[in-house]
Structures are given as structure tokens and as C-alpha cells.
């Protein structure tokens, strides 16, 4: 049974774009990255999963439970970190943790204190006096402290300094090794690259691509650079040429077609040099962001 499963999930807000026909499956124990530029629909998807907003059509299930009908039992087993963290200004950090702990059956405060220690969060400070980074840490503790089966993070690392980001990732890797599934949205590629087993790319409300990191890197894309002997650069009209650029007799391509076809096409010319490289993730994502889907 997938931990998250959406079928044709759609949310439209009048004129503004929402999400369109989102089909996702996240399996138990996975770390799934949800990638896309700002306004692509990442937060809308997450808010629908948590039933803050209601889907216009389609369904979504978390741990086999319907997100609209069974939202209370879902939330008991899910930890959520919102993109923007805001808490009650009249409370101290400890007040908030206590308040939150009262919503759960068993006593989670000892673990909450342990987590606060890891993130060097001062429990006695009033919330209104905390910086964004410290508020984010509260959000992380609140998401983790009841040991949920699924963690949903919306842009988790914004506001955290590099040291805290590293600790955060270490904690995530630890809870993931204990079986916790993690779903997080991001536009920071390095953290996606470091953590995720699989990614989904969303743009303008639609899923463009879902695949493993290796898939993205190896199977589909090649950076091709060709230096032609005559200095005459021909046009390569091949299916799979995504990006083409020429400079000083050198042709650079982002290519995701059949490699044999490419070689056959190149065989007609005399070359001085040829490079086939794995593109960086940035190049792949930029390709998705800039153009319509593959």
C-alpha cells in the first residue's frame, strides 16, 4: 500500500491556477522530493493532502485513508512543516510544545526536548522574540516529536543555517532508516540531490516527470559537445535534441534521444572532438522549468 496516493487530484481556484490531474505514488520508506519553481502547485498539493483545502476533483489517500474523510486519523500519523512558520506570540517554545503534545495520546514531551537539544532550541524563549530560523526549528520539532509515519515538509530548509541544515538532514536520514516516509517540496536542488530516492517535477500545476534520481541523471539526459573539423556546424534535426547552441565550430546539445541515432547522425561529419557527459541536475531542472514537458 503506498503511503501517499493521489489519483487525478485537481484543485482550481477560480482564475488562479491550482493543480491539475496530479497522480503520485509515494511508497513506504521513501524520501520523495517534490520539485518545482515558485507557484507551480507544490504547496497546493500539500495543503490538499492535509485537507486544509478541498480537492475540486480526484482523490488522495494517505496510509490508505481518504484525505477528506479521515483527515483526523491521518494527521495523528503525519508530521507537517509548513513553508511559513507562525506560532502563538504569547507562548514560550515550551508552552507551544506542551500545547501540541496535549493533542496526542501518549507523552511525547521527552522526545520533543531531545529534538530541541539537537537543534539547539531554547525552550524558555518567548516565541515572539525568535528569529525565522529558530521558528523553523520549532516547526521541525513539532513535525517530528510524535514520531509520525509520514513527514510532509514544505520548503524545509529555508531560514536554517548550514550547520542546522546538516543536522536536519542527519535527523531525517535517521528517522527514514527507522521506516519513516518523507515527502518534501523544494526548489533547492542540492538538498534534493543529497536526500531523495525519487523526485516528482511539477510545473504550472501539472506533474511533468516522476522518476528516481538515477533515472533523471543517467538514462535520459546527455550533455553532448561536438567539435567539427571544417568549422562548419550543421543543424542536427533529431528527435531528442532539447537544447542546442553553437559557438566557434562547437555544437552543444542537451540530448535525451537514442544515443545510436545521434552517433549515426554524427558519423556523416568529420569531427575533431566529441564529449558525452552527464548533465548536472541544474541543467535538467532548468530544462523542465523553461520548456514545456518532455
Amino acid at each position: 500500500m503506498p503511503v501517499i496516493e493521489t489519483v487525478g487530484l485537481t484543485k482550481s481556484y477560480g482564475r488562479a491556477r491550482g493543480i491539475i490531474d496530479i497522480n503520485l505514488q509515494v511508497e513506504e520508506g521513501e524520501i520523495f522530493g517534490f520539485i518545482g519553481p515558485n507557484g507551480a502547485g507544490k504547496s497546493t498539493t500539500i495543503r490538499t493532502l492535509l485537507n486544509f483545502i478541498f480537492p475540486t476533483s480526484g482523490t488522495a489517500k494517505i496510509l490508505g485513508l481518504d484525505v477528506v474523510r479521515d483527515s483526523v486519523s491521518i494527521r495523528r500519523q503525519v508530521g507537517y512543516l509548513p513553508a511559513e512558520v507562525s506560532y502563538y506570540d504569547d507562548m514560550t517554545v515550551l508552552d507551544l510544545l506542551r500545547y501540541s503534545a496535549r493533542f496526542y495520546a501518549s507523552d511525547h514531551l521527552p522526545y520533543a526536548r531531545q529534538l530541541a537539544d539537537i537543534f539547539e532550541l531554547d525552550l524558555c524563549r518567548p516565541i515572539h522574540a525568535l528569529s525565522l530560523g529558530n521558528r523553523k526549528k520549532i516547526g521541525i520539532v513539532l513535525a517530528l516529536f510524535h514520531r509520525p509515519k509520514l513527514l510532509i515538509f514544505d520548503e524545509p530548509t529555508s531560514g536554517l543555517d548550514p550547520l542546522m541544515q546538516r543536522r536536519f538532514f542527519e535527523v531525517l536520514e535517521e528517522v527514514n532508516s527507522q521506516g519513516t516516509t518523507i515527502f518534501f517540496s523544494s526548489h533547492v536542488l542540492s538538498e534534493v540531490q543529497r536526500l531523495c530516492h525519487r523526485v516528482g517535477i511539477i510545473k504550472e500545476g501539472r506533474i511533468l516527470h516522476v522518476g528516481t534520481m538515477d533515472d533523471l541523471r543517467h538514462r535520459y539526459f546527455r550533455n553532448v559537445r561536438v567539435e567539427f573539423k571544417q568549422g562548419m556546424v550543421p543543424q542536427l534535426a533529431l528527435p531528442g535534441v532539447l537544447h542546442s547552441q553553437q559557438e566557434n565550430g562547437t555544437l552543444s546539445l542537451l540530448y535525451n534521444g537514442d544515443i545510436n541515432q545521434l552517433l549515426a547522425a554524427l558519423a556523416q561529419y568529420e569531427l575533431t572532438n566529441l564529449w558525452l557527459e552527464e548533465p548536472s541536475l541544474e541543467e535538467i531542472f532548468l530544462h523542465y522549468y523553461e520548456k514545456e514537458g518532455v
Binding site: 492535509l50 485537507n51 486544509f52 483527515s71 483526523v72 486519523s73 494527521r75 495523528r76 503525519v78 507537517y80 509548513p82 511559513e84 507562525s86 506560532y87 502563538y88 506570540d89 501540541s100 493533542f103 496526542y104 513539532l142
Partner: peptide, 14 residues
């Protein structure tokens, strides 16, 4: 208004 609703409705409460 204070955006604390995201905290509250993420707790297991209907």
C-alpha cells in the same frame, strides 16, 4: 490572520 491555523489543523483534531 496569524497563520497559526496551519499549526492547529495539523494536530489530530477535526
Amino acid at each position: 490572520d496569524d497563520k497559526t491555523i496551519e499549526f492547529l489543523l495539523a494536530r489530530p483534531i477535526s
